[in-house]
């Protein structure tokens, strides 16, 4: 539904307990990747290197937060019939602006990310948060929810990216971390980690670890 009753004004200011919970929840208990299993496609594609993963994570965080903020602000005016397409237009607009900034100030990264920036639009996390949260919550909390979910996505990407870059190419952020002497002793980079299946295996492990700690299991 478009218009849901606004919850009564609570005490606690901008960062009351509710707001903190909105940010903290998606980091662990309700993590978009590990718990909701959203955004898997992009997390396979951009995690071959840590810097790519970080930029993608920051991009998704900004886009989710801004789109949440905008949609939440106009949520009571959006006609229910066309709400999905309106969300999509807003998300696309924000993503293109992000892409334009990348092209102007981080040209190399924008070349390497190429199509993946455009694919933020199709990231289920963004649309998921708009539908599930921003359409029925006030702007400030929606913004925080976007930040929280983006960060939840970011840290998992960063972990996968770190492991893949070290094992797959022996580097971290482009700098060699595995010493040359090890290669001379017969060590080889793990080719599987450069490919998507490597990321799948890592994600599987992360989901397993996360769920065994948080005690969640599918019904």
């Amino acid at each position: 539904m478009t218009a849901t009753a606004t919850p009564p004004v609570k005490k606690g200011g901008l960062f009351g307990p509710d707001e903190i919970k909105v940010i903290k929840d998606p980091l662990w208990d309700n993590n978009p990747i590990a718990f909701q299993i959203l955004g898997i496609c992009s997390s396979l594609a951009v995690t071959t290197r840590l810097d790519k993963a970080l930029v993608m994570g920051i991009g998704v965080t900004l886009v989710t937060a801004l789109a949440n903020l905008i949609i939440s602000t106009i949520r009571n005016f959006i006609p229910n019939k066309i709400r999905i397409i309106v969300q999509l237009v807003v998300v696309s607009g924000v993503v293109i602006v992000f892409d334009q900034f990348l092209k102007a100030y981080m040209f190399d990264l924008s070349k390497q990310l190429s199509v993946f920036v455009g694919l933020i639009i199709t990231n289920c996390i963004v649309m998921g948060r708009l539908e599930a949260y921003a359409m029925s919550n006030p702007p400030w909390r929606s913004f925080l929810d976007g930040i929280g979910n983006g960060l939840g996505y970011l840290w998992i990407l960063a972990v996968v990216g770190t492991v893949r870059e070290i094992l797959g190419s022996g580097k971290l952020l482009g700098a060699q971390v595995i010493p040359q002497s090890l290669y001379e002793a017969g060590y080889v980079n793990n080719g599987l980690m450069v490919l998507a299946p490597g990321a799948f295996i890592l994600l599987g492990i992360i989901v397993w670890v996360q769920r065994s700690i948080s005690g969640y299991s599918e019904k």
Binding site: I82, V90, V97
Partner: peptide, 25 residues
């Protein structure tokens, strides 16, 4: 908010606003 006129007007407003923003950027 579910009349055809409103839906149409809303869609046009959203499109024009976003286009203007993109063009400016």
């Amino acid at each position: 908010t579910s009349s055809n006129g409103y839906v149409l007007g809303f869609a046009v407003t959203v499109c024009v606003t976003i286009s203007a923003m993109l063009a400016a950027t």
